[in-house]
Amino acid sequence: MSETTGGVEMQEDVSGVVKKFLYVNRKAPYGTIYALESLEVVLIAAAFDQDVSLVFLDDGVYQLVKGQHTKTIDVKNFSPTYRALEGYDIEKLYVEKESLAARGLTPEDLIVPVTLLSAAEMSDLMDGQDIVLSF
């Protein structure tokens, strides 16, 4: 099994096809495992040369908040990994404006630069995708 491509040998029928993959992160970073395991999918997906975008909405916006301290809950703080996404050529990060505002947050509170979209614009973004994976 290949480590970087998650068990898939790159073959003719996979290489060359580029689809638009959207990863929708809706949940807080801790409390459930969805955020962490979503990030694991995104990192593997980067090896497939697909058109990847990430969305953060609802409590998912908390995944990107600066200054996370997780020592007292004995869980690894994985938020620095979001900063590494650029190195995987994953640069399209979108945050829903309303979700951010409802939680008293601004883009300055976030660990990475993002594009803000309204709920309506988010809907258009989703509409234009081939694959939407929701976590």
Binding site: G7, V14, V41, F48
Partner: peptide, 12 residues
Amino acid sequence: SGLGQLIESGIQ
């Protein structure tokens, strides 16, 4: 198997 199987499924 690995997560690549999920991405491959999305592609195929």
